[in-house]
Every structure is written in C-alpha cells, then in structure tokens.
Design a protein around this nucleic acid. Structure first.
Lengths: 202, 202
DNA sequence: GTCTATATTGAGATAGAC
DNA sequence: GTCTATCTCAATATAGAC
C-alpha cells in the first residue's frame, strides 16, 4: 500500500540484488562486496543506501511478512467456510513464491541465525500471528466436521507451511505450471487426506 | 559398518559439537572459535583433528547420506508393493531425525551454499540417487493403480522430501511423539490423499 | 592432544573527495 | 550517488613448544 512498487529506485534495485544473493548463498555466506559487485558499485557505496548488511535482510523480510500477513487476513475474511479458507491460504502462500522468492529463501535458510539476534525478534511475532491464523482455520474445520478429527491442527499447519515454503528451492513460477497451478495440485493432494469422506488407505 | 560408533573418540565428540553449531547457526554463521569453545579447547587445536571447517561439514553430511541411502535401498528391497515401500521410505527418513538431526539441519540450511563448492559436488549425486529411488516407488504405485494417476511422481517426491526434512526445525524426538509416530501420522495424512479409493474433497 | 603465538586474509564499515 | 582510501576486527589457518 504505502511501499513504492512503480519504477524501482536505486535503493530498491540494490535491495533486490542483495535478496538474490542472500537467497542463493545465505545471509552469512554473502558479502557486502558481492552485493556491491552485483550492483556495479564499490562496497563502501552501499552504505549511502543502507546502515548495514543486517538492515538489508531486515527490510527484505519485513516487506514480505507484512504483505503476506495482510493477504492472509483478507483471505480468511473472504472465505466461505474452513475448507475454502484453507484453500485460499495455500493460494496466498504459493502466490508469494514469485514476487517474494528471495525473501522466502532467506526465511527458509537463515531463520535460525537471524531470530537469534534481538533486532530480528519481530520475526517470531509475525510467525506466531501467522500460526494463529492457520491453526484457527484448521481447528474450525475440524470442529465443523470438514476435516478429520484425528489430526493435531498445529502439526498439520507445520506440515503445510514447510512443504509450501520449501518448494522455493525447486519451483520455477515461469515454467509450465504457475504458482496457482501448484497451489491447486497441493490442495487436491492435501484435502484428499484431510477431508473425511474417503475410505482407509490401501 | 566400518565407522566406529562405540565410545566416541575425541574427534567424533568434536564433530558432533560442530554439527550442533552448524545446525543452529548455519555453516557460514559458525566459527571455528565457537566450535573450539564448545569443545573446551583453543581454535588452533582443532586442526590437529581436521583439515578445515569444510572437512567437518563434509564428514557430517557424508556419514548421514551414506547411511540413509543404504537404508532406503534396504527398505525398498524389503517392501511388499509400492504403498508399503513408500511407507517404509517415510519411516527411514523420519527415523534419521533423531540420530542425524544436525546433519539434516545442515543439509536443509546450507545445501545451496555447499553444493556450489566443487568439494561438495557429491551431494548432488547422492540427491539424484535418492530422487531416483523415491520417484521409482511412486511411479510404480501409479502404474499399479495404488496411487492416483493425476499426480507427477517427481512433484510428489519433492513435496514429501521437503516436508519430512524441514520438520527437523520443530520436531523434538524426545517429546510425546516418537519419530515413527510422526511418520505414521504423516503417512496417514498423505496416503489418504494419494490413494485413489476416496470421494472428492468437500 | 592441547597450548602459545601469530600469520594472513577477508569481512563490515567509515570519512571525505568528487 | 559513487569513488578512493583505509580502519578495525574477526575469520581461518599454521608452526612449534609442551
């Protein structure tokens, strides 16, 4: 909403390059010199735009988490029943694989390292809020009889979350399948196991 | 077989400590000084046991990958049909979450960084062989009619692999559920969606 | 097997000119 | 907004004594 997404500023260009490096080489494995090289400037010049390497990762993750949390809230508000809500949440998550690919990779690879630093403590808050939203939807579905009752909603949430995010490692949204195709396939596979109207496994 | 697993040697003790650090702080985010501190020695003394920090990660990953590949082969050889084979593979993978927790965390967090180095090129070979085994089982199941035919075996494999490994981030095998409980739960959820004898989702 | 001591490199970051 | 030049510190790694 407030963040500029028109023609990218130099600052945003550099941030995107940094994100790409963090995503492929990890946060600690990327150097400010590599970032500067990618931007075609010298490492010292980076500090005209950013305070530190950490502040780059901070901005990358914050932008992603704020946007997706808002999208989650909107998805739940628009949903008709828990099954629809879960489908919408899955689509929101997969939809972020394109525009926020690098942020998701950073989140997957460097979460443990970053949350240990005080300045990244907000990551936990965002993660907790996200978990509350998803677990609420799943628990509602169990209560309503839409999902089988012999599952732990928290465990289900974690399976889903991880399976979705980690696909950032291999999924190329430009390929034959779009992110929403993938979301549909995943929901089909998932709901077949989550919904209760099937026989037992063979 | 050949590797000693009796009373751990000093070398093995240090390796386990290094693995723990790599797992929580990442490979690039861990320093040899931290490893030495954990072992109660000075950083220089580490080089009596190991050539380099890389060689530590090398040993950690190699031991894990060699063992689990052997277990995968054995699981497939012992299985009666594709569904049983898939269940067994899932159990082997989850079974590694206890003894190889740190190696799995390193694999999850630092895979991209490490495979870029020539000395870790073998990681790709192991990954390819693993994928062949799993995809073969899934494809056999589709051919035999045990799994629904509208799935891409490679995509299914990746969903499974990632969902299993990434649970190293939150699963504590010492808790109320064992790794094999988790494997069973996951298989139930999964096969309900993979096997074809259910109605459509609600 | 560990220590002392240190070499050497590369990292993040800064000051001021242009 | 970038460059030149450089500081400072921390990183991996080594040599030889104990």
């Amino acid at each position: 909403m407030t963040s500029a997404t028109q023609v990218p500023t130099r600052r945003e260009e550099i941030l995107a390059l940094a994100a790409g490096l963090f995503a492929t080489r990890g946060f600690a494995g990327s150097t400010v010199r590599e970032i500067a090289d990618a931007a075609g400037i010298l490492s010292g010049s980076l500090y005209h735009h950013f305070d530190s390497k950490e502040s780059m990762a901070d901005e990358i993750l914050r932008a992603f988490l704020d946007e997706i949390l808002a999208d989650y809230h909107a998805a739940i508000a628009a949903a008709e029943g828990p099954v629809d809500a879960l489908r919408r949440l899955v689509h929101v998550a997969y939809g972020a694989l394109g525009p926020h690919r690098a942020a998701i990779a950073v989140m997957m690879n460097d979460w443990n390292l970053l949350v240990q630093q005080p300045r990244f403590a907000y990551l936990r808050d965002r993660a907790d809020e996200t978990e509350r939203l998803w677990v609420g939807v799943i628990a509602d579905g169990v209560a309503a009889g839409a999902f089988r009752a012999d599952v732990d909603p928290r465990m289900i949430y974690r399976f889903l979350r991880d399976a979705i995010w980690v696909s950032v490692r291999w999924f190329q949204p430009d390929g034959s399948t779009s992110a929403h195709d993938l979301a549909d396939r995943y929901c089909d596979m998932l709901l077949g196991g989550l919904t209760r109207d099937q026989g037992g496994p063979t």
